[in-house]
Design a protein around this nucleic acid. Structure first.
Length: 275
DNA sequence: CCCAAGTCCTGGTTGC
DNA sequence: TGCAACCAGGACTTGG
């Protein structure tokens, strides 16, 4: 699943491939993907727009284009953003394809492939998609610390894991990294979020940054469909300690990890080490 | 048939 | 009592 580290890996590659280059044509687009825009607008506005910046907030990518345009992209659950030469065939589940080129360069394609239909793209003028405004600070690069974390945790009765998955508090954590962060911090996913003691909040803050940094360093988690813009897998899946490992021994105490459901999501944790 | 899980939406509950 | 904030759960999607 593309979460913060996967999207950050894609962002870095897109920066190398796209910055300073311009879109030349909209080759294909499935209308169901579009938000805040229509296919007609996409066809009319995108060609000749130059890519001036590529940023990320949580799991959203934002391409700043010339003419005050912004392309906001979400990979959904199984979305892949691929940079391909024109000679390559379009992948099976290509949902949209944008041609681009730099001065005197051959055209290439930016292809969004998505087996399912959770991915979205917005073309807006003047700023990124409006829904980003409701999002909390980026969980890795945002300006937050234990103090702010304690503040947003305060009074909440929802399970801790549900809090981590809620993008309005911190942006970028999904199901895989939530399980890994909670294991690292030694905190139960079921703990009411508002009941953490100060020392536990500090442990949580450290674990969030450490696990996301590790994910970026390992170029993401390819446990299912995730690949980078060149189709390469990440390797964080080889370092998983909790996610998907229910029934296997806890890496810390050896007792079997258990599985439960939190916020409708499968959750693996150690009932002994995580309190 | 159930499971996987991103975000959005709805409707019910809580507490000031 | 009224109201906003909060929270749980369903919808959507397709392949294993």
């Amino acid at each position: 699943m593309p979460e913060l580290p996967e999207v950050e890996t894609v962002r870095r590659e897109l920066a190398a491939a796209l910055l300073g280059r311009a879109f030349t044509a909209v080759e294909r687009v499935e209308p169901f993907m579009l938000r805040d825009t229509t296919a007609e607008q996409l066809f009319a506005l995108l060609p000749e727009a130059e890519v001036q910046s590529i940023s990320r907030q949580g799991k959203f990518l934002v391409l700043g284009l010339s003419g005050g345009l912004f392309l906001t992209i979400h990979l959904g659950m199984t979305g892949q953003l691929l940079v391909l030469p024109l000679a390559a065939e379009l992948p099976r589940h290509a949902r949209y394809s944008l041609r681009f080129a730099g001065e005197g360069e051959p055209e290439r394609r930016l292809v969004f492939a998505d087996m399912r239909k959770f991915g979205r793209v917005h073309l807006t003028e003047g700023g990124p998609a409006a829904r980003l405004e409701a999002m909390g600070p980026d969980a890795l690069e945002g300006a937050w610390g234990p103090k702010q974390l304690a503040k947003s945790l305060a009074g909440r009765r929802a399970p801790l894991k549900a809090f981590l998955l809620d993008q309005r508090h911190l942006a970028g954590i999904g199901n895989i990294y939530a399980d890994e962060i909670l294991f690292q911090a030694g905190l139960s996913p079921l703990r009411p979020a508002g009941e953490l003691r100060p020392a536990e909040v500090r442990r949580l803050a450290v674990a969030i940054r450490e696990k996301l940094e590790e994910g970026v360093r390992l170029r993401g988690c390819s446990i299912s469909d995730y690949v980078d813009t060149k189709g390469r897998r990440g390797s964080f899946q080889d370092s998983l300690q909790a996610y998907g490992r229910h029934g296997e021994p806890c890496p810390r105490c050896g007792r079997p990890l258990v599985r439960t459901l939190v916020a409708g999501r499968g959750t693996a944790y150690c009932a002994h080490c995580q309190r």
